[in-house]
Amino acid sequence: MKASICATIAAAVIAIPSFAFAQADTSGNAPITRAQVRADLVRVEQAGYNPASSDINYPADIQAAEAKLNADHAYGGVSNGSANGAAVQN
């Protein structure tokens, strides 16, 4: 009887960590892949960021490129050379 209790406890101690690792991450904090990082770098470079020449202005350069990307994808933005609204008649 005592041996079966010890065996049950030992099995539970071994099995519990495997259940913890088996849970899916539903919080949206899943790790990103290398392909996602590379795709993001390509998008930022296409927006004007140059990683080779931005040692001095690193935060400002990449933030400007990301702001440009975010502005391109923003809802309700104003396109260049156009106005939002009716013409005023006198």
Rank of each mutant, 00 (worst) to 15 (best):
R34E: 14
R38C: 03
I62R: 00
F21V: 11
V44T: 11
P59L: 04
V44W: 00
S27H: 00
A35T: 15
A87P: 03
A60S: 12
G76L: 00
N90I: 15
A67E: 06
S18N: 00
N29K: 04
I56M: 06
Y58I: 06
S54Q: 07
S18H: 03
I32E: 03
N90Q: 09
A64W: 01
Y75M: 05
D40G: 15
A71M: 01
N90P: 15
Q23V: 11
A60R: 07
S54V: 03
V37Q: 00
A83L: 08
G81F: 14
G48L: 01
A52I: 06
A67V: 09
R43Y: 07
N70H: 07
G77S: 10
Q89N: 07
F19Y: 08
N50A: 02
S27D: 05
N80W: 09
G28C: 06
A83V: 11
Q23A: 09
T33V: 10
S27V: 11
K68C: 05
S27Y: 01
A24C: 00
A60L: 13
A71G: 06
H73M: 08
S27W: 02
A86I: 08
A20V: 15
D61C: 12
A30V: 01
A65I: 03
N29E: 09
A64Q: 03
S54R: 00
F19A: 15
G85I: 11
R43N: 12
K68R: 11
R34W: 07
T33I: 12
D72R: 05
N29V: 13
A67I: 04
A71N: 02
A74E: 13
K68F: 14
A74C: 13
Y75T: 14
V42I: 06
L69G: 13
V37R: 00
P51H: 06
Y49I: 04
S82D: 01
D40E: 04
G48Y: 08
P51M: 02
A64P: 05
N70D: 09
S54F: 05
G85F: 08
T33D: 07
T33A: 04
A24Q: 09
Y58T: 12
P59K: 04
G85H: 08
A83T: 12
A24G: 10
R43I: 10
A39P: 01
T33S: 07
G28A: 02
V78W: 00
T33N: 05
K68D: 04
Q89K: 08
F19I: 15
I32G: 04
Q89C: 10
A20C: 11
N70F: 11
A39Q: 09
G77F: 12
S82G: 11
A22T: 03
N70R: 09
S79G: 12
A71P: 01
A87Q: 04
S54L: 12
A83G: 11
F21M: 06
A74R: 07
G85K: 00
N29I: 13
D40W: 11
G28H: 03
S79V: 12
P31S: 12
A22K: 03
A64F: 01
I56Y: 11
Y49Q: 03
F19T: 15
P31E: 02
N70M: 09
G81W: 06
D25K: 01
D25A: 04
